[in-house]
């Protein structure tokens, strides 16, 4: 059992822990996945056509939010939303951004699995606000 071998030397000090934490975060920001995510986000933000499509979709969704919640959109409204969605998702910068985000998420999930195995608690769920079931 782990406790039988615990001594002060085998416990990670706070300063070592903070150092390895910051080093990990820094290395993660240098990965191709993170850099591609940052670059694609900036490209999306600077793409006027994509931003216009995004705002149009957002505005329509906000205007129809209540009707969507009640599942009572008529055919015309449904089609308008569908058209705005397809206009948005067909923008190249949007597609690049989504793909980069998916790649980064996949990398983070694999990292999360390693951390979860090390600590014996689900890393992602434990860090939810309010705890695992919060």
């Amino acid at each position: 059992m782990k406790t039988e071998t615990i001594n002060e030397l085998s416990v990670t000090s706070k300063s070592v822990l903070m150092h390895t934490t910051r080093r990990f975060a820094k290395v993660l920001t240098e990965t191709p996945e993170f850099l591609a995510f940052e670059q694609s986000y900036q490209a999306f933000r600077q793409d006027q056509k994509a931003q216009t499509a995004y705002n149009a979709l957002q505005n329509k969704q906000q205007a129809l939010r209540m009707m969507m919640m009640l599942n009572s959109l008529d055919e015309k409204e449904r089609q308008e939303l569908k058209d705005l969605e397809s206009q948005f998702y067909q923008e190249e910068t949007v597609q690049n951004y989504i793909q980069a985000q998916e790649n980064l998420v996949e990398l983070c999930q694999d990292i999360g699995d390693v951390l979860t195995e090390a600590v014996g608690l689900d890393f992602g769920s434990s860090c939810r606000i309010g705890g695992c079931c919060g």
């Binding site: 059992m1 782990k2 406790t3 615990i6 085998s10 416990v11 990670t12 070592v16 822990l17 390895t20 934490t21 080093r23 990990f24 820094k26 290395v27 993660l28 240098e30 990965t31 990292i111 390693v114 951390l115 195995e117 090390a118 600590v119 014996g120 608690l121």
Partner: peptide, 28 residues
């Protein structure tokens, strides 16, 4: 290799932290 080393170091640091060691003991 850089990411692997950083993840390994972090995982090991977490595993040997006071809070995780205590949880592991109490859980066992």
């Amino acid at each position: 290799p850089e990411l692997f080393a950083a993840i390994s170091d972090l995982a090991e640091s977490l595993e040997h932290s006071e809070a995780v060691l205590d949880f592991s003991e109490k859980n066992q």
